[in-house]
Nucleic acid binder design. Structure first.
Lengths: 235, 235
DNA sequence: ACCTGAACACCGTTCAAGT
DNA sequence: ACCTGAACACCGTTCAAGT
Protein backbone atom coordinates (compact mmCIF):
# COMPACT_ATOMS: atom_id res chain seq x y z
CA UNK A 1 0.00 0.00 0.00
CA UNK A 2 2.95 2.31 0.67
CA UNK A 3 4.26 4.34 -2.24
CA UNK A 4 7.24 2.86 -4.07
CA UNK A 5 10.43 4.71 -3.20
CA UNK A 6 11.57 4.99 -6.83
CA UNK A 7 8.57 7.05 -7.75
CA UNK A 8 10.13 10.54 -7.57
CA UNK A 9 7.29 12.31 -9.36
CA UNK A 10 4.29 13.13 -7.31
CA UNK A 11 1.18 11.32 -8.49
CA UNK A 12 -0.83 13.23 -11.09
CA UNK A 13 -3.10 15.74 -9.47
CA UNK A 14 -5.76 17.77 -11.18
CA UNK A 15 -3.65 20.69 -12.45
CA UNK A 16 -5.89 23.07 -10.57
CA UNK A 17 -7.95 22.06 -7.61
CA UNK A 18 -11.63 22.69 -8.12
CA UNK A 19 -11.44 25.29 -5.41
CA UNK A 20 -8.50 27.66 -5.47
CA UNK A 21 -6.99 28.30 -2.07
CA UNK A 22 -7.81 31.56 -0.38
CA UNK A 23 -5.07 34.18 -0.58
CA UNK A 24 -4.72 37.78 0.44
CA UNK A 25 -4.67 38.74 -3.23
CA UNK A 26 -7.85 36.90 -4.08
CA UNK A 27 -9.57 38.56 -1.13
CA UNK A 28 -8.45 42.04 -2.21
CA UNK A 29 -9.48 41.24 -5.81
CA UNK A 30 -12.97 40.35 -4.71
CA UNK A 31 -13.25 43.39 -2.44
CA UNK A 32 -12.06 45.66 -5.25
CA UNK A 33 -14.67 44.23 -7.59
CA UNK A 34 -17.39 44.85 -5.01
CA UNK A 35 -16.30 48.37 -4.07
CA UNK A 36 -16.00 49.53 -7.69
CA UNK A 37 -19.29 48.00 -8.76
CA UNK A 38 -21.46 48.67 -5.74
CA UNK A 39 -19.71 51.25 -3.57
CA UNK A 40 -18.12 51.22 -0.16
CA UNK A 41 -21.22 50.24 1.77
CA UNK A 42 -21.62 47.10 -0.33
CA UNK A 43 -18.27 45.79 0.83
CA UNK A 44 -18.63 43.60 3.86
CA UNK A 45 -16.56 40.68 5.04
CA UNK A 46 -19.63 38.54 4.47
CA UNK A 47 -20.16 39.68 0.88
CA UNK A 48 -16.50 39.20 0.05
CA UNK A 49 -16.64 35.71 1.51
CA UNK A 50 -19.78 34.92 -0.45
CA UNK A 51 -18.10 36.14 -3.64
CA UNK A 52 -15.31 33.66 -2.92
CA UNK A 53 -17.63 30.80 -2.03
CA UNK A 54 -16.72 30.62 1.62
CA UNK A 55 -17.72 32.02 5.01
CA UNK A 56 -16.62 35.29 6.59
CA UNK A 57 -14.51 33.59 9.21
CA UNK A 58 -12.18 32.19 6.55
CA UNK A 59 -10.99 35.65 5.58
CA UNK A 60 -9.46 36.30 8.96
CA UNK A 61 -6.67 33.80 8.28
CA UNK A 62 -5.33 36.22 5.64
CA UNK A 63 -6.51 39.67 6.66
CA UNK A 64 -6.42 40.93 10.22
CA UNK A 65 -9.46 43.20 10.08
CA UNK A 66 -11.64 45.24 7.83
CA UNK A 67 -9.44 48.24 8.48
CA UNK A 68 -6.40 46.36 7.16
CA UNK A 69 -8.43 45.41 4.13
CA UNK A 70 -9.18 49.10 3.57
CA UNK A 71 -5.46 49.84 3.55
CA UNK A 72 -4.91 47.14 0.94
CA UNK A 73 -7.69 48.57 -1.23
CA UNK A 74 -6.18 52.04 -1.06
CA UNK A 75 -2.84 50.70 -2.18
CA UNK A 76 -4.42 48.81 -5.07
CA UNK A 77 -5.94 52.05 -6.29
CA UNK A 78 -2.70 53.98 -5.74
CA UNK A 79 -1.02 51.55 -8.12
CA UNK A 80 -3.26 52.88 -10.91
CA UNK A 81 -1.86 56.40 -10.72
CA UNK A 82 0.12 57.45 -13.78
CA UNK A 83 2.84 59.55 -12.28
CA UNK A 84 4.13 61.29 -15.43
CA UNK A 85 7.63 62.62 -16.08
CA UNK A 86 10.36 64.04 -13.90
CA UNK A 87 9.72 67.00 -11.64
CA UNK A 88 10.62 70.17 -13.52
CA UNK A 89 11.29 73.45 -11.67
CA UNK A 90 10.12 75.31 -14.77
CA UNK A 91 6.62 73.90 -14.67
CA UNK A 92 6.14 72.47 -11.19
CA UNK A 93 2.84 74.27 -10.68
CA UNK A 94 1.26 72.59 -13.71
CA UNK A 95 2.76 69.26 -12.63
CA UNK A 96 1.24 69.70 -9.19
CA UNK A 97 -2.18 70.35 -10.68
CA UNK A 98 -1.81 67.30 -12.92
CA UNK A 99 -0.91 65.19 -9.91
CA UNK A 100 -4.08 66.26 -8.14
CA UNK A 101 -6.17 65.72 -11.25
CA UNK A 102 -4.70 62.24 -11.66
CA UNK A 103 -5.38 61.42 -8.03
CA UNK A 104 -9.00 62.48 -8.39
CA UNK A 105 -9.32 60.49 -11.62
CA UNK A 106 -8.15 57.31 -9.93
CA UNK A 107 -10.44 57.84 -6.97
CA UNK A 108 -13.37 58.41 -9.28
CA UNK A 109 -12.48 55.23 -11.17
CA UNK A 110 -12.55 53.35 -7.86
CA UNK A 111 -15.61 54.66 -6.05
CA UNK A 112 -15.53 53.87 -2.39
CA UNK A 113 -11.76 53.90 -2.12
CA UNK A 114 -11.83 57.54 -1.01
CA UNK A 115 -14.03 56.51 1.87
CA UNK A 116 -11.57 53.78 2.77
CA UNK A 117 -8.62 56.17 2.50
CA UNK A 118 -9.82 59.08 4.57
CA UNK A 119 -8.19 59.29 7.95
CA UNK A 120 -5.60 56.65 7.16
CA UNK A 121 -1.87 57.25 7.07
CA UNK A 122 -0.87 55.79 3.70
CA UNK A 123 1.91 53.34 4.37
CA UNK A 124 1.47 50.93 1.46
CA UNK A 125 4.19 50.76 -1.16
CA UNK A 126 2.18 52.23 -4.02
CA UNK A 127 0.81 55.05 -1.90
CA UNK A 128 4.31 55.86 -0.73
CA UNK A 129 5.57 55.95 -4.33
CA UNK A 130 2.86 58.48 -5.13
CA UNK A 131 3.88 60.55 -2.12
CA UNK A 132 7.51 60.43 -3.17
CA UNK A 133 6.52 61.80 -6.56
CA UNK A 134 4.47 64.54 -4.94
CA UNK A 135 7.39 65.53 -2.73
CA UNK A 136 9.57 65.71 -5.83
CA UNK A 137 7.25 68.19 -7.49
CA UNK A 138 7.04 70.31 -4.35
CA UNK A 139 10.81 70.38 -3.94
CA UNK A 140 11.12 71.31 -7.63
CA UNK A 141 9.00 74.30 -6.63
CA UNK A 142 11.69 75.25 -4.12
CA UNK A 143 9.48 74.75 -1.08
CA UNK A 144 11.35 74.39 2.23
CA UNK A 145 11.39 70.82 3.57
CA UNK A 146 8.76 71.42 6.23
CA UNK A 147 6.43 73.20 3.81
CA UNK A 148 6.82 70.39 1.28
CA UNK A 149 6.07 67.80 3.94
CA UNK A 150 2.94 69.54 5.19
CA UNK A 151 1.80 70.24 1.64
CA UNK A 152 2.14 66.50 0.95
CA UNK A 153 -0.30 66.05 3.82
CA UNK A 154 -2.74 68.79 2.78
CA UNK A 155 -3.01 67.83 -0.88
CA UNK A 156 -4.06 64.18 -0.60
CA UNK A 157 -6.39 65.07 2.25
CA UNK A 158 -8.17 67.63 0.12
CA UNK A 159 -8.43 65.47 -2.99
CA UNK A 160 -9.67 62.54 -0.94
CA UNK A 161 -12.30 64.73 0.70
CA UNK A 162 -13.55 65.90 -2.71
CA UNK A 163 -13.73 62.34 -4.01
CA UNK A 164 -15.46 61.15 -0.87
CA UNK A 165 -18.04 63.92 -1.11
CA UNK A 166 -18.77 62.89 -4.68
CA UNK A 167 -19.24 59.24 -3.81
CA UNK A 168 -21.68 60.17 -1.05
CA UNK A 169 -23.68 62.09 -3.61
CA UNK A 170 -23.44 59.39 -6.27
CA UNK A 171 -24.42 56.72 -3.76
CA UNK A 172 -28.08 57.66 -3.97
CA UNK A 173 -28.32 56.43 -7.59
CA UNK A 174 -29.47 59.80 -8.83
CA UNK A 175 -29.73 60.45 -12.53
CA UNK A 176 -28.14 63.62 -13.94
CA UNK A 177 -31.66 65.00 -14.19
CA UNK A 178 -32.23 64.41 -10.48
CA UNK A 179 -29.01 66.24 -9.70
CA UNK A 180 -29.98 69.15 -11.94
CA UNK A 181 -33.36 69.38 -10.26
CA UNK A 182 -31.79 69.28 -6.80
CA UNK A 183 -29.33 72.03 -7.71
CA UNK A 184 -32.22 74.10 -9.05
CA UNK A 185 -34.19 73.61 -5.86
CA UNK A 186 -31.18 74.55 -3.78
CA UNK A 187 -30.73 77.73 -5.75
CA UNK A 188 -34.39 78.64 -5.33
CA UNK A 189 -34.08 77.90 -1.61
CA UNK A 190 -31.09 80.24 -1.27
CA UNK A 191 -32.84 82.95 -3.25
CA UNK A 192 -35.92 82.69 -1.06
CA UNK A 193 -34.07 83.13 2.24
CA UNK A 194 -34.75 86.30 4.26
CA UNK A 195 -32.41 88.90 2.77
CA UNK A 196 -31.87 90.75 6.07
CA UNK A 197 -30.21 87.74 7.68
CA UNK A 198 -28.72 86.09 4.60
CA UNK A 199 -27.86 88.96 2.24
CA UNK A 200 -24.86 87.31 0.59
CA UNK A 201 -26.37 83.84 0.40
CA UNK A 202 -29.31 85.37 -1.47
CA UNK A 203 -27.16 87.58 -3.69
CA UNK A 204 -24.69 84.83 -4.56
CA UNK A 205 -27.29 82.06 -4.93
CA UNK A 206 -26.37 81.35 -8.52
CA UNK A 207 -22.61 81.41 -7.86
CA UNK A 208 -23.08 79.10 -4.86
CA UNK A 209 -24.84 76.50 -6.96
CA UNK A 210 -22.61 76.82 -10.05
CA UNK A 211 -20.06 74.28 -11.18
CA UNK A 212 -21.65 71.33 -9.44
CA UNK A 213 -20.85 68.11 -11.20
CA UNK A 214 -18.31 69.83 -13.40
CA UNK A 215 -14.67 70.21 -12.57
CA UNK A 216 -14.69 73.97 -12.22
CA UNK A 217 -14.92 73.89 -8.45
CA UNK A 218 -12.02 71.46 -8.27
CA UNK A 219 -9.96 73.50 -10.73
CA UNK A 220 -10.58 76.56 -8.57
CA UNK A 221 -9.23 74.73 -5.53
CA UNK A 222 -6.17 73.63 -7.52
CA UNK A 223 -5.44 77.24 -8.34
CA UNK A 224 -5.86 78.37 -4.75
CA UNK A 225 -3.60 75.68 -3.35
CA UNK A 226 -0.96 76.07 -6.04
CA UNK A 227 -0.87 79.86 -5.72
CA UNK A 228 -0.72 79.59 -1.95
CA UNK A 229 2.21 77.19 -2.12
CA UNK A 230 4.02 79.30 -4.71
CA UNK A 231 3.92 82.17 -2.22
CA UNK A 232 5.96 80.01 0.16
CA UNK A 233 8.74 79.06 -2.20
CA UNK A 234 12.24 80.04 -1.18
CA UNK A 235 13.92 82.44 -3.50
CA UNK B 1 -71.25 64.05 35.45
CA UNK B 2 -70.52 66.74 32.86
CA UNK B 3 -68.16 69.48 33.89
CA UNK B 4 -69.80 72.63 35.26
CA UNK B 5 -69.66 75.42 32.70
CA UNK B 6 -68.35 77.98 35.26
CA UNK B 7 -65.25 75.97 35.85
CA UNK B 8 -62.80 77.74 33.51
CA UNK B 9 -59.67 76.17 34.92
CA UNK B 10 -58.76 72.75 33.67
CA UNK B 11 -58.69 70.05 36.33
CA UNK B 12 -55.33 69.66 38.11
CA UNK B 13 -53.04 67.38 36.21
CA UNK B 14 -49.66 66.14 37.37
CA UNK B 15 -47.50 69.12 36.36
CA UNK B 16 -45.27 66.83 34.36
CA UNK B 17 -46.23 63.39 33.15
CA UNK B 18 -43.94 60.69 34.49
CA UNK B 19 -42.75 60.09 30.94
CA UNK B 20 -42.07 63.12 28.83
CA UNK B 21 -43.34 62.78 25.30
CA UNK B 22 -40.82 62.12 22.59
CA UNK B 23 -39.85 65.15 20.53
CA UNK B 24 -37.35 65.88 17.79
CA UNK B 25 -35.41 68.04 20.24
CA UNK B 26 -35.16 65.36 22.89
CA UNK B 27 -33.95 62.90 20.27
CA UNK B 28 -31.26 65.28 19.02
CA UNK B 29 -30.28 66.04 22.64
CA UNK B 30 -29.73 62.38 23.35
CA UNK B 31 -27.85 61.81 20.09
CA UNK B 32 -25.62 64.81 20.82
CA UNK B 33 -24.83 63.45 24.26
CA UNK B 34 -23.89 60.09 22.79
CA UNK B 35 -21.80 61.44 19.92
CA UNK B 36 -19.81 63.82 22.14
CA UNK B 37 -19.20 61.23 24.85
CA UNK B 38 -18.62 58.10 22.80
CA UNK B 39 -18.02 59.15 19.19
CA UNK B 40 -19.87 58.72 15.94
CA UNK B 41 -19.87 54.94 15.93
CA UNK B 42 -21.59 54.83 19.31
CA UNK B 43 -24.61 56.68 17.94
CA UNK B 44 -27.22 54.26 16.72
CA UNK B 45 -30.96 54.61 16.55
CA UNK B 46 -31.11 51.81 19.08
CA UNK B 47 -28.77 53.47 21.57
CA UNK B 48 -30.60 56.78 21.28
CA UNK B 49 -33.89 55.00 21.89
CA UNK B 50 -32.43 53.20 24.89
CA UNK B 51 -31.18 56.52 26.27
CA UNK B 52 -34.77 57.77 26.04
CA UNK B 53 -36.33 54.66 27.50
CA UNK B 54 -38.08 53.51 24.38
CA UNK B 55 -37.55 51.37 21.30
CA UNK B 56 -35.88 52.32 18.03
CA UNK B 57 -39.12 52.30 16.09
CA UNK B 58 -40.49 55.19 18.14
CA UNK B 59 -37.87 57.57 16.81
CA UNK B 60 -39.16 57.29 13.27
CA UNK B 61 -42.28 59.26 14.16
CA UNK B 62 -40.06 62.34 14.61
CA UNK B 63 -37.00 61.78 12.46
CA UNK B 64 -37.16 60.39 8.95
CA UNK B 65 -33.83 58.58 8.92
CA UNK B 66 -30.41 58.46 10.41
CA UNK B 67 -29.16 60.74 7.66
CA UNK B 68 -31.71 63.40 8.65
CA UNK B 69 -30.55 63.01 12.23
CA UNK B 70 -26.98 63.63 11.08
CA UNK B 71 -28.08 66.91 9.50
CA UNK B 72 -29.72 67.97 12.76
CA UNK B 73 -26.54 67.15 14.69
CA UNK B 74 -24.44 69.22 12.32
CA UNK B 75 -26.73 72.18 12.81
CA UNK B 76 -26.59 71.83 16.59
CA UNK B 77 -22.82 72.04 16.43
CA UNK B 78 -22.92 74.94 13.97
CA UNK B 79 -24.90 76.89 16.55
CA UNK B 80 -21.88 76.78 18.83
CA UNK B 81 -19.66 78.76 16.50
CA UNK B 82 -18.70 82.18 17.77
CA UNK B 83 -18.75 84.25 14.65
CA UNK B 84 -16.89 87.34 15.89
CA UNK B 85 -17.19 90.91 14.60
CA UNK B 86 -18.00 92.45 11.24
CA UNK B 87 -15.98 91.57 8.17
CA UNK B 88 -13.16 94.09 7.81
CA UNK B 89 -11.37 94.59 4.47
CA UNK B 90 -8.29 95.68 6.42
CA UNK B 91 -7.86 92.34 8.18
CA UNK B 92 -9.95 89.85 6.24
CA UNK B 93 -7.10 87.35 6.02
CA UNK B 94 -6.78 87.13 9.78
CA UNK B 95 -10.57 86.93 10.10
CA UNK B 96 -10.63 84.08 7.61
CA UNK B 97 -8.03 82.17 9.60
CA UNK B 98 -9.98 82.80 12.80
CA UNK B 99 -13.11 81.47 11.14
CA UNK B 100 -11.34 78.25 10.20
CA UNK B 101 -9.80 77.92 13.66
CA UNK B 102 -13.22 78.42 15.26
CA UNK B 103 -14.78 75.83 12.96
CA UNK B 104 -12.10 73.30 13.91
CA UNK B 105 -12.55 74.14 17.60
CA UNK B 106 -16.28 73.42 17.44
CA UNK B 107 -15.75 70.19 15.55
CA UNK B 108 -13.18 69.07 18.08
CA UNK B 109 -15.60 69.90 20.89
CA UNK B 110 -18.19 67.69 19.18
CA UNK B 111 -16.31 64.61 18.08
CA UNK B 112 -18.21 62.65 15.50
CA UNK B 113 -19.99 65.64 14.05
CA UNK B 114 -17.33 65.99 11.36
CA UNK B 115 -18.09 62.46 10.28
CA UNK B 116 -21.78 63.32 10.12
CA UNK B 117 -21.09 66.53 8.19
CA UNK B 118 -18.80 65.27 5.44
CA UNK B 119 -20.48 65.01 2.11
CA UNK B 120 -23.60 66.84 3.22
CA UNK B 121 -24.78 70.13 1.77
CA UNK B 122 -25.33 72.25 4.89
CA UNK B 123 -28.88 73.55 4.66
CA UNK B 124 -29.71 73.99 8.36
CA UNK B 125 -30.27 77.50 9.67
CA UNK B 126 -27.17 77.65 11.87
CA UNK B 127 -24.90 76.20 9.21
CA UNK B 128 -26.23 78.74 6.73
CA UNK B 129 -25.56 81.59 9.16
CA UNK B 130 -21.96 80.42 9.42
CA UNK B 131 -21.70 80.30 5.65
CA UNK B 132 -23.14 83.79 5.36
CA UNK B 133 -20.45 85.01 7.72
CA UNK B 134 -17.76 83.26 5.72
CA UNK B 135 -19.00 84.82 2.49
CA UNK B 136 -18.86 88.22 4.21
CA UNK B 137 -15.21 87.78 5.06
CA UNK B 138 -14.39 86.60 1.53
CA UNK B 139 -16.20 89.52 -0.05
CA UNK B 140 -14.38 91.87 2.34
CA UNK B 141 -11.25 90.43 0.73
CA UNK B 142 -12.52 91.63 -2.63
CA UNK B 143 -12.92 88.18 -4.11
CA UNK B 144 -15.16 87.97 -7.18
CA UNK B 145 -18.54 86.38 -6.51
CA UNK B 146 -17.70 83.05 -8.09
CA UNK B 147 -14.38 82.81 -6.28
CA UNK B 148 -16.05 83.65 -2.96
CA UNK B 149 -18.71 81.01 -3.57
CA UNK B 150 -16.22 78.27 -4.43
CA UNK B 151 -13.97 79.28 -1.55
CA UNK B 152 -16.98 78.92 0.76
CA UNK B 153 -17.17 75.35 -0.52
CA UNK B 154 -13.45 74.59 -0.26
CA UNK B 155 -12.91 75.93 3.24
CA UNK B 156 -15.54 73.96 5.19
CA UNK B 157 -14.67 70.84 3.21
CA UNK B 158 -11.03 71.10 4.22
CA UNK B 159 -11.67 71.88 7.89
CA UNK B 160 -14.20 69.06 8.09
CA UNK B 161 -11.71 66.65 6.54
CA UNK B 162 -9.07 67.62 9.10
CA UNK B 163 -11.50 67.18 11.98
CA UNK B 164 -12.70 63.87 10.60
CA UNK B 165 -9.16 62.61 10.26
CA UNK B 166 -8.50 63.51 13.89
CA UNK B 167 -11.57 61.71 15.16
CA UNK B 168 -10.60 58.57 13.27
CA UNK B 169 -7.22 58.69 15.03
CA UNK B 170 -8.70 59.49 18.43
CA UNK B 171 -11.28 56.73 18.07
CA UNK B 172 -8.75 54.08 18.97
CA UNK B 173 -8.46 55.35 22.55
CA UNK B 174 -4.73 55.92 22.24
CA UNK B 175 -2.88 57.71 24.98
CA UNK B 176 -0.56 60.57 24.02
CA UNK B 177 2.29 58.13 24.68
CA UNK B 178 0.86 55.66 22.16
CA UNK B 179 0.62 58.43 19.58
CA UNK B 180 4.19 59.52 20.26
CA UNK B 181 5.39 55.95 19.88
CA UNK B 182 3.45 55.49 16.64
CA UNK B 183 4.90 58.71 15.21
CA UNK B 184 8.37 57.55 16.20
CA UNK B 185 7.84 54.20 14.51
CA UNK B 186 6.55 55.90 11.39
CA UNK B 187 9.61 58.10 11.25
CA UNK B 188 11.89 55.10 11.65
CA UNK B 189 9.94 53.32 8.92
CA UNK B 190 10.38 56.24 6.53
CA UNK B 191 14.08 56.51 7.34
CA UNK B 192 14.55 52.80 6.71
CA UNK B 193 13.00 52.79 3.23
CA UNK B 194 15.29 52.06 0.24
CA UNK B 195 16.81 55.42 -0.60
CA UNK B 196 17.02 54.72 -4.35
CA UNK B 197 13.26 54.49 -4.70
CA UNK B 198 12.22 56.83 -1.88
CA UNK B 199 14.97 59.46 -1.68
CA UNK B 200 12.74 62.32 -0.52
CA UNK B 201 10.65 60.25 1.86
CA UNK B 202 13.89 59.16 3.54
CA UNK B 203 15.45 62.64 3.52
CA UNK B 204 12.31 64.37 4.80
CA UNK B 205 11.34 61.67 7.31
CA UNK B 206 11.49 64.05 10.26
CA UNK B 207 9.59 66.84 8.48
CA UNK B 208 6.94 64.34 7.37
CA UNK B 209 6.27 63.25 10.92
CA UNK B 210 6.51 66.70 12.52
CA UNK B 211 3.60 68.69 13.86
CA UNK B 212 1.34 65.72 14.44
CA UNK B 213 -1.13 66.41 17.17
CA UNK B 214 -0.16 70.03 17.28
CA UNK B 215 -1.79 72.75 15.26
CA UNK B 216 1.22 73.55 13.10
CA UNK B 217 0.03 71.45 10.19
CA UNK B 218 -3.38 73.13 10.30
CA UNK B 219 -1.83 76.59 10.59
CA UNK B 220 0.28 75.82 7.55
CA UNK B 221 -2.84 74.93 5.57
CA UNK B 222 -4.52 78.16 6.73
CA UNK B 223 -1.59 80.13 5.35
CA UNK B 224 -1.65 78.30 2.03
CA UNK B 225 -5.37 78.75 1.52
CA UNK B 226 -5.38 82.38 2.62
CA UNK B 227 -2.41 83.30 0.44
CA UNK B 228 -3.93 81.47 -2.51
CA UNK B 229 -7.21 83.34 -2.13
CA UNK B 230 -5.46 86.68 -1.68
CA UNK B 231 -3.86 86.12 -5.07
CA UNK B 232 -7.35 86.04 -6.58
CA UNK B 233 -8.66 89.27 -5.10
CA UNK B 234 -9.79 91.93 -7.57
CA UNK B 235 -7.78 95.08 -7.41
C1' DA C 1 -51.51 60.87 16.48
C1' DC C 2 -48.21 58.64 18.74
C1' DC C 3 -45.97 54.65 20.44
C1' DT C 4 -44.58 49.74 20.69
C1' DG C 5 -42.90 44.69 20.02
C1' DA C 6 -41.37 41.95 16.92
C1' DA C 7 -39.42 40.99 12.87
C1' DC C 8 -36.48 41.50 8.52
C1' DA C 9 -32.27 41.64 6.51
C1' DC C 10 -28.15 42.75 7.59
C1' DC C 11 -23.11 43.85 10.16
C1' DG C 12 -17.62 42.57 12.16
C1' DT C 13 -15.41 39.33 14.81
C1' DT C 14 -14.43 35.10 17.65
C1' DC C 15 -13.89 30.34 18.57
C1' DA C 16 -14.11 25.48 18.98
C1' DA C 17 -14.06 21.91 15.86
C1' DG C 18 -12.72 19.81 11.82
C1' DT C 19 -9.27 18.46 7.87
C1' DA D 1 -1.87 25.47 8.55
C1' DC D 2 -5.98 26.49 6.81
C1' DC D 3 -10.82 26.39 6.76
C1' DT D 4 -15.57 26.05 8.56
C1' DG D 5 -20.30 26.46 11.07
C1' DA D 6 -22.23 28.52 14.45
C1' DA D 7 -22.61 31.93 17.56
C1' DC D 8 -22.13 36.66 19.82
C1' DA D 9 -23.35 41.18 20.02
C1' DC D 10 -24.70 44.31 17.27
C1' DC D 11 -26.99 47.47 12.99
C1' DG D 12 -31.24 50.65 10.25
C1' DT D 13 -35.79 50.28 9.02
C1' DT D 14 -40.65 48.52 8.53
C1' DC D 15 -45.10 47.26 9.97
C1' DA D 16 -49.15 45.55 12.15
C1' DA D 17 -51.11 46.19 16.42
C1' DG D 18 -52.13 48.79 20.27
C1' DT D 19 -53.57 53.26 22.96
Amino acid sequence: MSQSPWQPISPPKPPRPAKEPLTRDRIVDAAMRLIVEHGYDAVSMRKIAQELGTGPASLYAHVASKSELNQLLVDRAAAQMKLGGRPDPGRWQEQLKDYMREMLRVMRANPGVARAAIGQVPLGEQALLGNEKLLGILKAGNLPDQAAAWAADLIPLYVTAVAFEETVQNASAWTPEDVARFVGEMRAYFEGLPAERFPLTVALASALTAGTGHDERFEFALSVITAGLAAMAED
